[in-house]
């Protein structure tokens, strides 16, 4: 198949970027989207153009490194799928494809389609953990955890930290990301000791990073490659209000 790509190119954080058009000829429908970009980049390089930079690593949908807003949708048109797992058979011969980076002031563009997501790391550093050191922990079966709660924790914990929720949100809010982490620990006995402190600190850092507020449009849930539910946002909201108004361990 033959496609026309409009790709965002930007030299660095300080230089404004712009779209450039590339022809993608003879693309196999069995290629992944990133393999298609590999091929286009390789050909551009042969013509003396620097290859387009985009984040990617595991290419099996779990590391959370790949991104790209493809025709207006983070991770492209297929639900519950990261860009690296999106295959070209989802497109039609002759399609125009617009490829943009995640856009958020908290995710500055470093080059082309690569953005800086270290804001997520800093949020995690504020409270996305259980404050225990290595060693001296009780037996794994010492505290029973109901299957239901463990499953709810796991649903939230499956977040890959890709940032698609921020990219899709009209307010560039990271509440789905923060909610997922808060929810994971909320459903586990190990998370209770720091429950209030965690939610307050993580939301505070979320705000400090310049992410927007949640307007409950649920676009994040719709694009999340791991299908994390906005339930986690409601849970975080409840915990936040409880902690802010009556919290005792904060």
């Amino acid at each position: 198949m033959n496609l026309t790509l409009k790709i965002w190119r930007q030299k660095d954080k300080a230089t404004p970027g712009k779209f450039e058009t590339y022809d993608a000829k003879d693309i196999s429908p069995d290629m992944s989207f990133l393999e298609m970009l590999d091929v286009v980049s390789e050909r551009a390089q042969a013509n003396g153009q620097e290859p387009c930079a985009f984040d990617h690593d595991c290419r099996e949908g779990i590391c959370g490194m790949c991104s790209l807003v493809i025709n207006g949708v983070p991770h492209g048109p297929e639900a519950a799928t990261t860009t690296c797992q999106l295959h070209m058979r989802k497109f039609k011969d002759g399609d125009n494809i617009v490829i943009e980076p995640w856009r958020a002031s908290a995710f500055p563009v470093l080059r082309d389609l690569v953005v800086d997501r270290s804001a997520f790391d800093r949020i995690q550093q504020k409270g996305g953990f259980v404050s225990i050191n290595t060693g001296g922990t009780p037996d794994g079966n010492a505290i029973p955890i109901s299957k239901k709660e463990a499953d709810l924790a796991m649903d939230a914990a499956s977040c890959i930290g890709c940032g698609a929720c921020v990219a899709a949100c009209k307010n560039a809010s990271a509440m789905l990301f923060v909610g997922a982490k808060v929810s994971q620990y909320m459903h586990l006995p190990q998370g209770q000791a720091e429950r209030s402190r965690r939610v307050l600190a993580m939301v505070e850092q979320h705000d400090a990073e310049g992410f927007g507020a949640c307007s409950n449009l649920q676009e994040c849930e719709a694009v999340c490659p791991k299908e994390i539910s906005v339930r986690v946002i409601a849970e975080m909201n409840r915990d936040y209000l409880r902690a802010a108004l009556v919290g005792t361990d904060a």
Partner: peptide, 25 residues
């Protein structure tokens, strides 16, 4: 909240598609 939200995305997408949001929202 709106002012904050506007500041959170200084550059708009060239191509923006809604998936889940309702008309009211």
């Amino acid at each position: 909240v709106s002012m904050r939200n506007r500041a959170a995305r200084p550059i708009a997408y060239a191509n923006n598609k809604w998936i889940a949001a309702s008309l009211g929202s």
